[in-house]
Design a protein around this nucleic acid. Structure first.
Length: 192
DNA sequence: GCAGTGATCATA
DNA sequence: ATGATCACTGCC
């Protein structure tokens, strides 16, 4: 049963950038038979609409992308490289295709590893993320004061022209990690 | 650095 | 029907 507040459709019926950032620190809950796994969300990516050349919906509505045109708050799950299930949640209003990819939850780094660990596959495609059944997301309290949101370009979208550099990847870090990232980004300091 | 693996999509 | 392309991972 839910130990936190289940995120409602209104949470998802917003632009993907906002949903992607707000999902950080929430919990992804998987229930199969009597077993429940809960994992904190620490890395997401936003695919913001048909004009976003990294978004699957750039080619319009196809059988694969049809669920992206559904209402916010349903799962979009697809197979990549013949091996890995990618978990996304649809965002925005009905008929506007956009989604957020789950890239890291709990201790599983990488979108393919988290779906394998949580037994997530195509059978969840198109189902609701807003009911305590199978797979859903809960708010179990605010982010820690020691945590910060870092934005970077998305992974694996080099083909997307100007869209490959947009800062649509969101990572939840503690302050120490965030400071290290900032230092790396600004380059090594001159010492003499 | 690159192979593995299969659905999806454009082209025909 | 065929061939290219992947929102990845693990091993070299």
């Amino acid at each position: 049963m839910a130990r936190g507040r289940i995120l409602k459709p209104a949470f998802y019926a917003r632009p993907a950038e906002l949903v992607a950032e707000d999902l950080l620190g929430k919990y992804l809950i998987r229930q199969v038979d009597q077993e429940t796994i809960a994992a904190r969300i620490t890395e997401t990516e936003a695919y913001i609409g048909p004009h976003d050349l990294a978004c699957h919906a750039r080619a319009g509505r196809t059988s694969r992308t049809a669920v992206m045109f559904g209402p916010g708050g349903i799962w979009y799950v697809y197979l990549i490289y013949g091996m890995y299930w990618m978990l996304n949640v649809v965002t925005g209003e009905e008929d506007y295709p956009a989604a957020v990819l789950f890239r890291t939850v709990g201790t599983w780094t990488g979108p393919g590893k988290l779906t394998r660990a949580m037994s997530i596959d195509k059978s969840l495609n198109g189902l609701s993320a807003t009911r305590a059944s199978g797979l859903w997301i809960e708010d179990r309290g605010p982010k820690l004061d020691t945590e910060a949101v870092c934005r970077t370009p998305r992974i694996g979208v080099d083909y997307a022209g100007e869209w490959k550099d947009k800062l649509y990847r969101y990572v939840l870090q503690n302050e120490t990690e965030a400071a290290t990232s900032r230092r790396k980004r600004s380059g090594p300091k001159k010492t003499s």
